[in-house]
Amino acid sequence: MRNLVIMPAMAQNRERMNLGEYAEEATIIIDEPVKPANHFIEANTQEVTLNHLKNDCITPVFSKDNELTINHAQFVETIQDAAQSFFSGEKVEQATIRTSHIIKGRIPEAIHKPANQLLESDKTIYYERAAFSIDVPTIYETVGGNKLNLSIVGVRAYNQMNLYSKKVPELFRLAVGFKNIVCANLCIFTDGYKDDLRVSNTTELYRAALELFSNYNPARHIYLMQQLGDTSMSEHQFCQIIGKMRLYQC
């Protein structure tokens, strides 16, 4: 009967077995965090938090009947709640907010104080304009090698209303799509669906936001974008399109 021979561990015999010519140094793969998309034309805006809008800013009123406006914090919170409700089961990020045109004031007790003697507790502020974006990263598709996340953007400005009159429905602009750009001048550029919402309270705003989301079909939108990648045109057709675009305003 032959003797049993126990071979030494392979790791100890790497050089003897000439494994070096096949072995390679391990490559460490690090997943870089994906930088969130910037949906703003920033210009002279500044980024603020929802807590700042809720706790540090006053709410303007319609002077004729002293009725409150829907302030910026309520606008953002209402759309955030509507998005989380409509896209239930998906990950909905917290809103990123940018504001502009700060309006400074003071409390009645500090009316006669010189400006250099004002305390922080004497000052009041609010922002004339506010815009926000909300990403839904779990709803995405890759089109033409580009990963597209669903996002929601909104903007409103107090200067679009006459605050010296009685309360009237307020204007809000909202959009949902895979490529959105918003600025504080009430401009929204989107490849999805956008609409102007005129509402008098947050309940109407919530309902209008849900209706806007339901009017948008992301699956059809993705399909059309994918089909566009397979579309071609002749030089003559391209020139015709450019010519019609230049004449459109006429």
Rank of each mutant, 00 (worst) to 15 (best):
K91H: 15
Q117I: 00
T190K: 01
N3G: 13
H236C: 10
E90I: 02
T138W: 02
T78I: 08
I97F: 12
F189I: 07
K179L: 09
A157C: 09
P218D: 06
A209M: 03
K167P: 02
I70R: 07
D135I: 13
F172L: 01
Y223R: 15
S234W: 06
N3F: 13
A219K: 06
E90K: 00
P137H: 10
D230V: 06
V155E: 09
N66G: 11
I222T: 05
N201V: 01
Q160R: 05
D195V: 07
E93S: 05
G20L: 03
A184N: 12
S121Y: 04
Q226Y: 03
L148E: 08
Y248M: 11
L228F: 14
G229R: 07
N159C: 14
F86Y: 15
K123F: 05
F213E: 00
G177W: 04
Y216L: 01
N215H: 14
Q240N: 07
H101R: 10
T203F: 15
K64V: 09
R16Q: 12
R106I: 12
G229F: 10
L210T: 10
E235V: 13
L119K: 07
H52M: 14
A73Q: 06
D31G: 07
N66P: 08
T190R: 03
H221C: 08
H52N: 06
I188A: 05
T69Q: 00
T96K: 08
Q227P: 06
L19N: 11
I181L: 14
N149I: 13
I241P: 00
A209G: 04
Q80A: 13
F40R: 00
C183G: 09
A11D: 10
R198I: 06
D195N: 09
P108R: 05
V48N: 05
S100L: 07
E24F: 00
E24P: 00
R207Q: 14
G243D: 02
N201G: 04
I30Q: 12
S151F: 08
M1W: 10
Q94H: 15
F172E: 00
N13T: 12
T202K: 10
R2I: 13
T69P: 04
Q74T: 10
N180C: 08
I107H: 08
I125K: 05
E211Q: 15
P8T: 12
L210K: 15
V34W: 02
F238W: 11
N18F: 12
F213M: 00
S63V: 14
F238P: 01
K104H: 11
Y223D: 15
A175Y: 03
T231R: 11
Y126E: 05
I241K: 04
G177E: 02
C187H: 10
T49D: 04
N146A: 14
S234Y: 12
Q249W: 11
N13R: 01
N38S: 09
E120P: 03
I102V: 13
C183V: 09
K113E: 04
L212R: 13
F75I: 03
N44H: 14
P108Y: 00
Y223C: 12
A9I: 04
F62P: 00
E47L: 07
L4H: 13
N44S: 15
T45K: 03
I58A: 03
F213L: 00
